[in-house]
Write a protein that binds this DNA or RNA. Structure first.
Lengths: 339, 339
DNA sequence: AGCGCATTTGACGACGTCGTCATATAAATT
DNA sequence: AATTTATATGACGACGTCGTCAAATGCGCT
C-alpha cells in the first residue's frame, strides 16, 4: 500500500502538498505539482478511499437493495442505468439483495449504515407496492419500479404502464381493430392492473361495446410460481369463429404463447390476427417473427433518473417525496396490421 | 455518526472493551458484555467499515468487472450467484462495467485499488476469450464465463458447453433421430463453436452420415448487432421434403424462431419435428409450448463457485491458475419426441 | 525602510478502529 | 506464604487522509 506519505517522501515535499495536488487545490507552484505528479506515477499511488471516508465521513456511496426475482431478468437494465449514472458522477454502488426475506432486509440496512451509505435505491424487479423495512433508519431513499405502501412515504420513480397501455390500445383502435382480445397479467402485479385498466378505458372511450372485448386471465398465483393459462386462453379466444382481429398481451412473454397458438390454428400474423405485447423485452420481441409491436418499459431510464433523483435528495434534503413517472414508448414493429 | 467511543462512554468502559464485545473476543465478563450490548442497542451503534479498513488494510471487498452486453440479460444470474456467496461469507461486492471500453476498464482497476479490493471477478455476459487490461495491477482475479487470452494466465470458471451439447445430441440420437438439422450460433461466440463441435463429434461417433446433418448459420456479425438468419434458415430446412426429424438450435432464443417456422409450415412439435435449445433461459424455454428441451447454462453456479474460488486464491495465494468447468444439465421437457 | 497582502509550504491533529502492551485482580500451584 | 497462571480491563498509538493554522516568501505600495 503506497500512501500519500510515500509520495511526499519521494517528491521531497510534505504530505499536505501531495494532498493538494491530488485534490486539485490551488496554491501549488507548477514546478511542485510536476514533481509530485511524477512521484505519483512512479509509485503508482492511488488515494485510499477508506481513509478519505474516515476523514470526511462522506462515502459517496449509494446502496441498491433489490428483491431479485430471477423470473424477470430484463430488469437488470435498471441496475445498468444506476451504474452508468453513478460512474459518470463519481459515486460507488453497493449491491445487496433480500431474496424476499425481511430479516435479511434489516441486516442489509445495517450493512449500509456500516458503510456510511449516503442514500438507498430500493429496486424491485417488477412494478409493485412495497413497504421497506427501513424501520429506525432514515437514509435518503428512492423507490425504483415500485410504489410506497401505507407505512412509508418515499419518493418513487415508476414506469407509466397506464400511458403505455393507453397508447398501445389507441394504436390498435386507430388501425381499425374493433374486436379485441386481452390476456391479463397476474392481478397481483401493479403494472398488470394498470395496463388492463388503461386498455378498458381506451376501448370504452372509443365506444367499443363490452361484447367486443374478450378478456382472459393469463396467469395467477404467487410471483415466480404462477400457473399459466396463456396458451390455452389464446387458443380459446382464437378458435371462436367470431374471433377478435387483435390480441393484446399483458407482456411480451405472453405474446410468445399467443403467437404459437395462432400459428397452430393456421392463422397468419398479422394478416389474420394482430398481436401486441408489453415490456419490449428484446430477447423476445425481436426473436418473434414478425417482430413484436409493443410498449417499452423504460428500465434503463428508471435506474439512471432514479439515481439522479436520489442525489438531488441528498444535496437538497428539503425537497418533498413525490412520484415520478417515466413514459413507455410505443415500439412499432410488424405484428399489428390495419384492418 | 455514533462511534465506539460514544458507546464506551455510555457503558462506562474503555473503547477497547467495546471493541472486544463487538468482535466477540474473549476476556470480557458477561456483566460487562451485557452492559456494552445494551449501550450498543440504545445508541444504535454500527461499526464503521471505513475505519476498520484503514486500521486493518483488509477490505473484505471483491470487485466485479463486467462487459455488460445487454443483449444477454439472463447472465444476471451470475451476479446473483456472486452476491449470494458474498453475503453468506461477509464479503462486499463492488460492481463496475466497462461498456466494452478498454480505457474505462483501466480506470475501473484504479477505482478498485482505491477501494482496497482484495480480488476481482472478471465476468463476461457470454462465453468468450478475454484479455483483461489489468496491466501493472496484479490483484487476485478469477475469470467467470470467459477464458484467458494469450496475454494473461488467470484461473477461470466456465460452462461446459461441450458436455452439454454432447449430452443433448446423444439424447436426440438415443430417441432415434438420424437426420438432424443444426442452426449455428454466431461463430465469434466461444460457446457456439464448442456446442457445434460437440454436436458434430457426437453424430460422427454415432455413425450418422454427413449427408444427414443439415447445418445452417443462424447469425453472424458483431455481438449485439448481428444479422439473424434463423427464421429463414429454419423454414428452409423444414420445407425440404426430406426434412430432418429434429433440429438443434445454438440457443433458446433461436428455438423460438424455429418453433414459429415449423408451425407456419403446419408442422406439429414434437410429433413432426423435435426441437432442442441451449441455455435454458426460462423466460423462453418455459413460455414455449410444448416447453423446450434444452441444456441449462449454470450461470448461478458460475457466480457462486467462482467467488468461492477467488476467496481461496486470496487465502492460499500459492495455488496455480487453472480452468474449472461446470456441467450444463440436460433439461428434459416436451419438445423432443422419440422417432 | 516599513507595511500590508497574496501566495506557497508544512506541522499537527482528528476521524473510528483495533493491535500491542501494561496493569490489575483472582485462582491455582508450589 | 510465595509464585505462577489465567482472566479482565484500559492507555496508547497507528492506519491514510485532509482541514486548520502557522510560518515563510515575494511583491507592490506608502
Amino acid at each position: 500500500m503506497v500512501s500519500i506519505i510515500d509520495v511526499a517522501r519521494a517528491a521531497g515535499v510534505s504530505n499536505k502538498t501531495v494532498s493538494r495536488v491530488v485534490n486539485g487545490e490551488p496554491y501549488v507552484t507548477p514546478e511542485m505539482r510536476e514533481r509530485v505528479e511524477r512521484a505519483i506515477r512512479d509509485l503508482g499511488y492511488v488515494p485510499n478511499m477508506a481513509a478519505r471516508m474516515v476523514r470526511s465521513s462522506r462515502s459517496r456511496t449509494f446502496g441498491i437493495i433489490t428483491d431479485y426475482v430471477s423470473t424477470t431478468p430484463y430488469s437488470g437494465d435498471i441496475v445498468r442505468g444506476i451504474q452508468d449514472w453513478a460512474t459518470a458522477n463519481g459515486k460507488i454502488i453497493l449491491l445487496a439483495n433480500t431474496g424476499g426475506d425481511p430479516e435479511r432486509e434489516l441486516s442489509i440496512w445495517n450493512t449500509f449504515r456500516s458503510h456510511q451509505i449516503e442514500g438507498v435505491l430500493y429496486v424491485t424487479m417488477y412494478h409493485r407496492v412495497v413497504d421497506p423495512e427501513a424501520g429506525d433508519v432514515d437514509l435518503p431513499t428512492v423507490l425504483i419500479n415500485c410504489h410506497p405502501g401505507s407505512r412509508v412515504d418515499l419518493p418513487s420513480i415508476e414506469p407509466d404502464d397506464t400511458q403505455g397501455s393507453l397508447d398501445l390500445t389507441r394504436y390498435l383502435l386507430a388501425r381499425g381493430h374493433r374486436r379485441i382480445g386481452y390476456i391479463r397479467l397476474n392481478p397481483i402485479l401493479l403494472g398488470g392492473e394498470q395496463r388492463y385498466e388503461a386498455f378498458r378505458h381506451a376501448t370504452t372511450e372509443a365506444g367499443i361495446p363490452e361484447n367486443d372485448i374478450i378478456v382472459r386471465l393469463g396467469m395467477e398465483g404467487p410471483v415466480g410460481k404462477e400457473t399459466n393459462y396463456v396458451y390455452s386462453a389464446a387458443r380459446d379466444i382464437l378458435s371462436d369463429e367470431n374471433r377478435p382481429t387483435a390480441i393484446m398481451c399483458g407482456n411480451d412473454e405472453m405474446a410468445i404463447q399467443v403467437y404459437l397458438a395462432a400459428l397452430h390454428l393456421g392463422l397468419r400474423i398479422p394478416e389474420d390476427v394482430s398481436i401486441a405485447g408489453f415490456d419490449d423485452f428484446q430477447t423476445l420481441s425481436l426473436a418473434l417473427k414478425p417482430e413484436l409491436t409493443t410498449a417499452a418499459l423504460p428500465y434503463y431510464d428508471l435506474g439512471f433518473k432514479g439515481t439522479e433523483r436520489l442525489n438531488q435528495l441528498i444535496e437538497i434534503p428539503a425537497d418533498r417525496p413525490s412520484r415520478v413517472v417515466v413514459p413507455c414508448e410505443l415500439i412499432e414493429r410488424g405484428s399489428v396490421s390495419s384492418k
